[in-house]
Design a binder for these strands. Structure first.
Lengths: 207, 207
DNA sequence: GCCAAAATTAAACAATCGTTTAAATATGGC
DNA sequence: GCCATATTTAAACGATTGTTTAATTTTGGC
């Protein structure tokens, strides 16, 4: 099979699985969406579940390397946190569909091996973020906080905003005209998280 | 139908929908789980979707009243925020299954009327929390922050922790022995959020 | 232009889906 | 104990599920 056709099917799969879930997306709908015959899904990928797996594996693990790169750089923890937050926000906003699939899958007990794979990815990313915070302790620029839950707060905030366009636009209250992918939302989330982390990690003024 | 039997079916439905999703839970599985004949689901509730609706409506809207009660009390905003956070944590930790169903449904384009209903509930709760923060502005005890995203941060943190037992226990790293519902997790999340909000909302010391 | 391999097709497969039917049983007022 | 109503049952309904089959078309090296 041509590589571009395979990629096209995976693109369509990500789109449809994102909107309707795994069980809610039939093989016939996938085939029609990709403009191929129903039998081609089994022919190319083996099964619906293996197509799902291929779709997950295509996206997974890319974030980790970027985080490691940020963390490896020789610079002050404040800048690192800021860069990591920006990277997270950009990454998730650029892959909202896949983001929703990941967290939906994590909350289900349906395909445990995929849940575990996703869990591994998220866990490794979290650890990388934690090590940034811990470096801040050592360099005595951050106060002691609950590092793990601080990372959860960052990721959780972004995940919540990108969970639902409908809800996000109502809560952020910038009119229904703007889509969730609008740049203003992205900037606003970044600003909020920078502000939040600055206040949260700053050492108290010695009185 | 006896009220207790109806409640029992709804309990089982919440459990199964929570673990396997709407499309992943067959009517026959629901019936077997509740110990009734398959036909009884249609007989009692009309359809699988109406059973789902009944299950959602049973839980929805209860949180809002409690929040309004907290907000109505005459006391300082710091105490209100603390109480609201505690209430949110307790509420969500006590209904993890339903929590997962809500956010899963919000991220899907499958049953739009249910998504809208859930969106309404979450939005109203958010507004109530925002008004607590805004009262803090007026009383000049909170600094100006992005109130809406601050609420998203609180809810997002709790949602992320309760999303997956597997992931939560790995990130929080307290051994696989402890379940996600363990009291220590709940306390730790409360402490983190109290600490976070204190740092985030505190007015900077005038230097 | 030929031929084996790969790709694509429509049709059929058994299994399961949500729901309905019609018969059997249980219930409660009289 | 009788009868109308409500409940419960097993069986069947047509539709859709994911996958396979077998026939057909397309492809690329020689």
């Amino acid at each position: 099979m041509s590589e571009e056709k395979r990629e096209h099917i995976l693109d369509v799969a990500e789109e449809l699985f994102g909107h309707h879930g795994f069980e809610g997306t039939s093989v016939r709908l996938l085939a029609k969406g990709a403009g191929v015959n129903v039998a081609m899904i089994s022919y190319y990928f083996g099964s619906k579940e293996k197509l799902f797996q291929a779709m997950v594996e295509r996206r997974a693990g890319v974030t980790l390397m970027a985080l490691k790169f940020i963390n490896a750089k020789e610079q002050d923890p404040w800048k690192k946190i800021e860069m990591a937050v920006d990277h997270y926000v950009d990454k998730i906003f650029s892959n909202i569909g896949f983001q929703r699939i990941m967290y939906r899958e994590l909350s289900l007990d349906q395909r445990s091996w995929i849940s575990e794979a996703i869990s591994n990815i998220v866990f490794q990313n979290t650890q990388e973020m934690v090590s940034i915070i811990e470096e801040g302790y050592k360099k005595k620029v951050f106060r002691k906080v609950d590092a793990e839950l601080t990372v959860v707060t960052i990721v959780g905030t972004i995940a919540k905003v990108t969970l639902s366009s409908l809800l996000c636009c109502r809560i952020l209250g910038e009119g229904a005209t703007k889509d969730i992918t609008d740049d203003s939302h992205r900037k606003r989330v970044k600003k909020h998280l920078h502000d939040l982390m600055k206040a949260h990690l700053r050492k108290p003024d010695k009185a």
